[in-house]
């Protein structure tokens, strides 16, 4: 419980920092005024309401969604390296978005968001089929490499398109890395609904996923239907990842970082882990975003780059620790 309290505190702190860091003068009190007594004539207030708040909300949605998606994926694949980014689900969403807006000839947010879900779902199915996940136990190495290969292929297509059209490069080269900037232009409301749906589904089926993570034979002995659980998990992961990609672009590695920490806060009870993942995911994403904004001013390091810079060493550390038997 103490760890959970720490997580909540961290989230609050991250949210406050997101709102206040970089505000020129007035700092916290100005932000407080803008929120409590909004003055539509004060440009500083408008800036906070129209730039900082959307950024905070986008960070909350994307961070919580990716954290939970990572936890579900790690539980169901028993793979400590599972993450929507590494397994190519982000790339699937990105691919669908880029192809779709190319065909439609426009890149508005509604369209991008609507395409992200089918893209994520297709990539998730593909990576599990290719990685042997449907047959039963997919080893971490196989699933990871299948994800890497799938990502490489989809991102090759994406970069072919981006390079073919210079105007597309301008739109997507920022988006493809993952960023919370210009979040005000994103369909935050719809994505929030999708994320909440995914979160509820995940929490509902969490005990079944726990049973499945003991192996499919024992899971059936415990009265669950593995196929149905996998389907439910797939829907949840798709809704969560799609929502995150919709508001922040394909941010990778958050789903890798968060579950390990969430386990500290939630023990081995998946529902608690999921809630802890949501809190920690949002907190880490907001922290990463804030650090990215202030570390080398005036340039901003995209939040996707930040998570990768933290997450890739984590990946290496975990790869080293993989038990010899677990690599099968």
């Amino acid at each position: 419980m103490r760890a959970m309290a720490v997580a909540v505190l961290a989230l609050v702190l991250a949210a406050v920092l997101t709102l206040t860091v970089g505000v020129r003068e007035g700092g916290f009190s100005l932000v407080w005024q803008a929120l409590s007594a909004f003055d539509p004539n004060d440009p500083a207030h408008i800036a906070i309401q129209s730039v900082r708040m959307p950024r905070l909300i986008a960070g909350l949605i994307a961070g919580a969604a990716l954290g939970m998606a990572g936890t579900i994926m790690q539980a169901i694949t028993r793979n400590p390296l599972a993450d929507p980014g590494i397994l190519g689900i982000n790339a699937g969403a990105a691919f669908a978005v880029v192809i779709g807006s190319l065909i439609a000839g426009r890149a508005d947010n509604g369209l991008m968001a609507a395409l992200a879900f089918p893209g994520a779902a297709a990539a998730a199915v593909a990576v599990f089929a290719l990685g042997g996940g449907l047959k039963g136990d997919a080893g971490p190495v196989r699933l990871t490499l299948a994800g890497v290969a799938l990502s490489a292929m989809l991102l090759s297509f994406v970069s072919a398109i981006i390079l073919a059209r210079n105007e597309a490069l301008e739109v997507f080269r920022f988006w493809v890395t993952g960023s919370l900037a210009q979040a005000g232009m994103r369909p935050l409301g719809y994505m929030a609904i999708a994320a909440v749906f995914g979160a509820c589904l995940a929490i509902a089926i969490a005990p079944r996923i726990e049973a499945l993570s003991l192996g499919s034979a024992l899971a059936r002995g415990l009265g669950t239907k593995p196929g149905r659980i996998q389907l439910g998990a797939l829907v949840a992961v798709t809704a969560l990842t799609g929502a995150a990609v919709g508001v922040a672009g394909p941010v990778a590695f958050l789903g890798l970082l968060v579950p390990r920490l969430a386990r500290r806060a939630g023990g081995h009870v998946l529902r608690r882990e999921l809630i802890a993942s949501a809190i920690l995911g949002a907190a880490i994403l907001l922290f990463a975003d804030t650090i990215g904004r202030i570390v080398i001013p005036p340039t901003e390091i995209r939040v996707g780059t930040m998570t990768a810079l933290i997450g890739a060493p984590m990946f290496i550390w975990m790869a080293r620790r993989l038990r010899a038997g677990a690599s099968a």
Binding site: V141, L145, G311, A312, P313, F315, I316, A319
Partner: peptide
């Protein structure tokens, strides 16, 4: 190979 992948991500 896995550590190499990680360096690649980085």
């Amino acid at each position: 190979i896995l550590v190499g992948l990680g360096i690649g991500f980085l």
